[in-house]
């Protein structure tokens, strides 16, 4: 369970990215965070694994106070939280399987990391993760030779190899074309359903959010302006989140009528 209690974040340059945010996310939920760019979506997601530190309030994940974590305890905490990025953040020049295996380095001894010696279980886990996102046959191809959609699926497999309880995804489909975006969102959905992993996605495209997420959180200027099940969202609520009517930029595939 992730619990924000009156959380605020002000950057050193004075920008207020989160303002008095309170919300609770239960284990196994599929949550989409929507809002304009610069609204604070990215900040919110990154505070959960303390890639960004909060400035005020209290944030607990499974009962652990996140802002109190540092050093070894922070690293141990992060092992259970996977993260997927807009630009995939794969290691170019090495194979897909080595990329997936890199999720295991946190648990390995330095000697094993230095020489890339992964255990039998780790290698099987990596291959199984690739199988779950449907690109097992690409295991020995160099990561930078895959298409964008395939690269994002490798990144997803890498996250799965971490055996996470929570997956945070920061605009995972923004760099993909509509067809690949659907495939990747489908992967997220399946992982959430079959493995009971909490999935929290930042997403700019409203149509994808509505299609796949169970719950929508709308953010505007660092504040939560909508929080509720996907089914009950209204055009007015969307207008409130975006501060204007939706434009073509806000949807990926088609105009939506809600």
């Amino acid at each position: 369970m992730i619990k924000f209690e009156n959380v605020g974040k002000t950057y050193s340059n004075g920008v207020k990215a989160m303002d008095n945010v309170s919300l609770t996310i239960e284990q196994g939920e599929f949550v989409a965070i929507i809002g304009l760019s610069g609204a604070g979506k990215s900040t919110l997601i990154r505070t959960i694994n303390k890639m960004i530190d909060i400035s005020s309030g209290k944030l607990t994940v499974n009962g652990i106070d996140v802002s109190g974590l540092q050093g070894a305890s922070l690293r141990r905490f992060r092992r259970k939280i996977g993260m997927v990025f807009q630009s995939f953040n794969l290691i170019s020049r090495i194979s897909v399987i080595k990329n997936v295996l890199s999720a295991r380095v946190a648990d390995l001894s330095l000697f094993r990391v230095l020489f890339g010696l992964y255990s039998r279980q780790d290698r099987i886990l990596a291959l199984e993760s690739l199988d779950k996102v449907g690109i097992l046959e690409k295991a020995y191809i160099r990561a930078d030779q895959l298409s964008g959609g395939q690269q994002q699926r490798v990144a997803l497999a890498r996250t799965l190899a971490q055996t996470p309880e929570i997956i945070l995804a920061d605009e995972p489909v923004a760099a993909l074309d509509p067809v690949m975006a659907d495939v990747v969102m489908e992967d997220f959905k399946r992982i959430n359903r079959d493995m009971k992993i909490t999935v929290i996605i930042n997403i700019h495209h409203v149509d994808l959010a509505l299609q796949y997420a169970d719950r929508i959180i709308g953010i505007r200027a660092g504040q939560i302006v909508y929080d509720g099940p996907t089914a009950s969202i209204t055009p007015n609520a969307l207008k409130e989140i975006y501060g204007r009517s939706l434009t073509d930029d806000d949807v990926m595939k088609e105009k939506i009528d809600v």
Binding site: I97, F115, G116, L117, R123, I124, L127, E128, D131, L136, E137, A139, Y140
Partner: peptide, 17 residues
């Protein structure tokens, strides 16, 4: 799960020596 492909890919893993 695709067991045969999994096994096949496992065998292709480069040796460390």
């Amino acid at each position: 799960m695709n067991t045969s492909l999994l096994e096949q890919q496992y065998k292709r893993y480069p040796k460390a020596w």
